[in-house]
Design a protein around this nucleic acid. Structure first.
Lengths: 343, 343
DNA sequence: CTGAAAGCGCTTACAG
DNA sequence: CTGAAAGCGCTTACAG
């Protein structure tokens, strides 16, 4: 490895000061076109690339944005999360795409220990952070104290108002799902969701379903609302219970594709035909929703749209050095495949 | 925001020099236990966290590792890649897990323009890079010139010898797949793979299949070896052709799950029963392989194992400041689900 | 065991 | 339009 060329060497070769070289690098309008040319030529010849690191130290910007994933179970890692939930990968990728166009990079992390997270942000000098999913409330206090641009994703809690936030219109999504089933003539429609009482997201999805049922003059009782873990296994177990208890439903609004796929698989493995004996609508439109036969009718979340919005919100604050708090809602859309049928 | 406390302030408060504080931070064995205690106490009280950035500038280590994804099509982004190929997400996550335990972080990138990639590495001062998948040959020249620890993944080409490399035993994998089918009594077994001639990975998978066929005294002719795009759509199109041309095969060794899933879906949608009319074995064991009904019999790649190895190889070189070139091969394993059946 | 000081590679008022 | 110099927050020989 040849010794790294630095700004001093460029300055020496160009016969100017390091300040002037710096101005050229940053395209500060203080240097004559002639000098600029000369300096640029030398930089190109020496294949000189300024160190972002050194720049950060003097101007206080690292051009680094932290993206944080919710490690809930002790066994969760950023790996298992990225692997099992396609949402994160797509969101992450879209953020990367936007911020890379500004010369920014992403630093990935999960949150394990509370204080450690804050220290990580400080030690790396992150310019901003984007949080995916929800965390223990005190995390938000910590983040707020940091005072850096922050975007929250899929958070409905009140502290969302202290930051930028990006959401999917969850209620509208399951409303569309239920409406679709009602339009197909279904009357006994169940709802399957994650912890409805504790998670505002799941609760909103439940409310959208409820609204559609109400409009359709259909009854909701305790026998048609179910809670499961939001995993494939959760869906499998639910379906097994459903079949065993012979619950009398012709259709299901499921608030996550991963669960809907589990239900579908368990039913099919047991010989229960989808959609002939049971219509199913999912939520998310993950890639695998189109892999099954029949394909899963679902509510598409425009994840990349959300990622793009999140990235732009944070870049706006970083570049303008402001601390605004926008809240944006992204529409969802019904995608009809083969898992739903007229009754 | 309160003003950032720095090492000078700690030194002042503790009545020592900044050098001493630095020694305490780095746990250099030069300071008396008593002084250490005092300094540590003050650091804790002030919630002081050293800037990695500043440290990097003086010691030359950024504690940053670049992970690079192969953007092949012009429309590829890190996002679409992470989303459509679960391999990347899992690999990335596992690397993250390992290096995070050393206080390192990951910087993500795709390779679009050649020179830009090199400049990115230089400007960020990355301590090492891990490349997933294959790239145009000149990229390897560039990377080599950089002289930083580098790990290649799934590369068989000769330049792999200049770096660390991690591979799956591809040939063994499809050998196991074909053996399984032969054991079930199949004789007319086809192979479906990506560009067999151009990609050593696909070629190796093809060779494994060939070896098993040979051992089983089964014929391979041009009518039973097929090339497709390694995408879900590629699988769908192949299956449609297969059914239209009424190719006389009872089983398929497919060299990627994503393709196998496309084949299965197209067959099922057309009323062709899996595994009754056609047995299928995939390769990879992506998450969706267990979502379908029947589940996909496949060859599991131990992706997280590969990620762990890659991360450890690079950390070893970084910490010891060496440039070694190990080459590691990870075994694969047959996972039997419902897509294969005795004939 | 502890400190003074140079250095890492930049930026940025300030002066001219 | 250009430069001298201080500063960003650390580390690290070197000296004692």
């Amino acid at each position: 490895m040849t010794k790294k060329t630095n700004i001093a060497e460029i300055a020496r070769l160009a016969g100017v000061s390091t300040a002037t070289v710096s101005y050229v690098i940053n395209d500060v309008d203080k240097v004559s076109e002639k000098t600029k040319e000369r300096v640029r030529k030398i930089m190109a010849d020496l294949d000189y690339i300024p160190s972002i690191n050194a720049r950060s130290l003097s101007n206080g910007r690292t051009k680094l944005i932290g993206v944080t994933l919710p490690l809930i179970a002790p066994s969760d890692t950023t790996g298992t999360l990225l692997e099992t939930n396609p949402f994160f990968a797509e969101y992450l990728g879209e953020i990367h795409k936007v911020i890379a166009s500004y010369g920014y990079d992403i630093l990935l992390s999960g949150i394990q220990v509370k204080g450690k997270y804050k220290n990580w942000i400080k030690s790396r000098g992150l310019d901003g952070i984007i949080l995916l999913g929800s965390y223990p409330p005190d995390i938000y206090e910590e983040v707020k104290a940091l005072g850096i641009p922050t975007v929250l994703t899929d958070i409905y809690e009140t502290y969302a108002n202290d930051f930028h936030s990006v959401n999917t219109d969850d209620a509208e999504g399951s409303y569309l799902a239920a409406k679709h089933l009602i339009g197909l003539g279904h009357k006994k429609i169940g709802f399957v969701g994650g912890s409805i009482k504790e998670s505002p997201i799941h609760n909103n999805r439940y409310l959208g379903y409820g609204k559609a049922m109400l409009e359709g003059n259909l009854k909701i009782n305790n026998d048609c609302v179910f809670e499961t873990l939001t995993t494939f296994e959760g869906g499998v177990k639910f379906a097994q219970r459903l079949m065993k208890e012979k619950v009398d439903l012709t259709a299901l609004v499921v608030d996550a594709d991963i669960v809907a796929l589990g239900i579908m698989k368990a039913c099919q493995d047991a010989g229960k035909k989808i959609p002939d004996e049971l219509s199913i609508v999912g939520f998310d439109d993950i890639q695998a929703a189109s892999f099954t036969s029949p394909g899963l009718t679902t509510i598409r979340q425009f994840i990349s749209k959300k990622g793009e919005i999140a990235a732009n919100l944070i870049m706006k604050d970083i570049l303008a050095n402001t601390r605004t708090t926008d809240s944006q809602m992204v529409k969802s859309k019904l995608i009809i495949r083969g898992s739903t049928k007229k009754i």
